[in-house]
């Protein structure tokens, strides 16, 4: 399998995926599909393509359809371009009770884009997400791999300025 000419799953990316594969039984390579999709999505600037999913399928010995199913089932996989900073605003109950909806409106206004769109400079996109499991710091957003809690309009201003 390693003889094949993969576009993305090679070198360091391959090593990272192989580390995940090694933690499952040898005959259960498909268990690494979620980390593999996460890693190739990251390499590709935050979203998956048909080619990437096909490569993952081939590498893990899965039917492409099985990979598409996983890639469309879980909400952290994206299928079209996102901003360099994908702002995931929690709007679930505990955040809603502490004015998360106002922050979404504010972001839309400030960035001039709707939920699901990317700013023309490619820097930001907005996504509404379900409970992030950090409701004690509501309202909460996840940007990249980081959580930001106790958000207000002012804190959002500072935060967006601090991100390149």
């Amino acid at each position: 399998m390693s003889e094949k000419n993969y576009q993305v799953i090679k070198g360091d990316v391959k090593a990272r995926i192989d580390r995940w594969i090694s933690q499952y039984p040898a005959d259960q390579r498909q268990s690494a599909v979620m980390p593999a999709l996460r890693i190739v999505q990251e390499i590709n600037g935050g979203y998956l393509t048909r080619e990437l999913m096909d490569e993952v399928a081939d590498y893990l010995g899965m039917p492409p359809m099985a990979v598409y199913e996983v890639a469309t089932f879980y909400s952290m996989y994206e299928h079209k371009p996102v901003g360099k900073h994908k702002i995931c605003m929690c709007t679930n109950i505990s955040c809603m009770l502490r004015d998360a909806d106002d922050l979404v409106e504010y972001l839309k206004e400030k960035l001039g884009v709707d939920v699901g769109e990317v700013t023309p400079d490619g820097r930001f996109s907005i996504k509404k997400v379900e409970c992030l499991g950090a409701c004690g710091e509501a309202p909460v957003a996840m940007i990249g791999k980081e959580y930001y809690g106790n958000l207000t309009r002012e804190r959002l201003d500072e935060l967006l300025d601090s991100l390149e």
């Binding site: 933690q23 499952y24 259960q28 498909q30 268990s31 690494a32 599909v33 979620m34 980390p35 999709l37 996460r38 893990l60 899965m62 099985a66 199913e69 996983v70 089932f73 879980y74 909400s75 952290m76 996989y77 997400v129 379900e130 409970c131």
Partner: peptide, 29 residues
């Protein structure tokens, strides 16, 4: 005894124990 982490990818239903198992098996939850 070996211990590993499996990372989810955004799906509340994977907290249900058999969906969680399916997810570790590399399937939809």
């Amino acid at each position: 005894f070996d211990l590993y982490t499996h990372l989810g990818a955004g799906a509340y239903i994977c907290g249900e124990e058999t969906a969680l198992i399916e997810s570790i098996e590399g399937k939809k939850g």
